[in-house]
């Protein structure tokens, strides 16, 4: 692998994502606006949510960026002739997916840090006790969510279908993860359905205050499964031409 070209590509993708309004909106604007609005409502109506506000808003923002923002960026590459231009000019087929993934990781990590800093200042929210463990949990959650978003983006080339399919993953992530209301309020079937998405495990892991295997391992399993789908899709894209 050409390391220099790869890292230049990652840096370039970060700049392209800032220039592209789609990712800017889904990774920064909407999550931060949602935080500004819902943070005020939650902490006024239910003061006890101050203990979980940072984690809840982070789950919302990361899920939005990974599941709504990343798939269209990937479809732009793999559903169009950009894929052919990359191959024709010497870049490997996985290059586009890897750079979009790493760039989104960076942007969503920055957005999560903004939430971490603003939550206590604006809404008197609790700061996680063990910050290194919190960041590690955040990183694991980001990896799992982004791998799912990447698998969706690589699997659906059609932009119109992609918008609908992304929502199929995003909405249950938000509604069934416990960030808006406790999952104990949900019917058993929906509670079980919620555990199929990274958001539920990520929220639990970030609230645990340490890397507990009971939440960490399911996220690793989701990450591995989504990565396997990505590898298969890339292999298919390579051979189907």
């Amino acid at each position: 692998m050409n390391i220099r070209a790869f890292f230049y590509g990652v840096g370039l993708q970060m700049r392209l994502d800032i220039r592209s309004r789609t990712l800017l909106v889904t990774c920064y604007l909407v999550p931060l606006l949602f935080f500004a609005l819902m943070g005020g409502i939650f902490t006024s109506l239910m003061p006890e949510t101050k203990a979980t506000l940072t984690q809840a808003m982070t789950v919302m923002g990361v899920s939005m960026g990974a599941l709504i923002g990343v798939p269209p960026s990937l479809a732009e590459v793999y559903g169009t002739d950009i894929k052919k231009a990359y191959r024709a000019n010497g870049a490997p087929l996985w290059f586009g997916a890897a750079t979009v993934f790493l760039s989104a990781f960076f942007h969503l990590f920055v957005m999560s840090c903004i939430l971490l800093v603003l939550s206590p200042v604006l809404f008197d929210a609790a700061v996680p006790q063990n910050l290194p463990a919190y960041f590690l949990s955040l990183a694991v959650f980001l990896l799992a969510s982004l791998s799912l978003g990447t698998a969706v983006g690589l699997s659906v080339g059609n932009q119109a279908k992609l918008t609908m399919i992304s929502q199929i993953f995003f909405l249950p992530s938000i509604l069934l993860s416990g960030i808006l209301f406790p999952i104990s309020y949900l019917p058993k079937a929906l509670e079980i359905l919620g555990w199929l998405f990274p958001a539920s495990w990520g929220y639990k892991l970030m609230l645990d205050g340490g890397l507990r295997l009971s939440s960490f391992l399911p996220l690793c399993a989701l990450f591995a499964a989504a990565c396997a789908v990505c590898v298969l899709r890339l292999h298919r894209l390579k051979t189907e031409s």
């Binding site: 050409n2 220099r4 070209a5 230049y8 590509g9 370039l12 392209l16 220039r19 592209s20 732009e76 590459v77 169009t80 002739d81 950009i82 052919k84 231009a85 024709a88 000019n89 010497g90 870049a91």
Partner: peptide, 18 residues
């Protein structure tokens, strides 16, 4: 063939030269 909408020609040339 196409390239990402927001990439600049000089960036594309540098990327593929690398």
């Amino acid at each position: 063939a196409s390239l990402p909408a927001h990439i600049k020609p000089k960036e594309a040339v540098r990327l593929f030269a690398m």
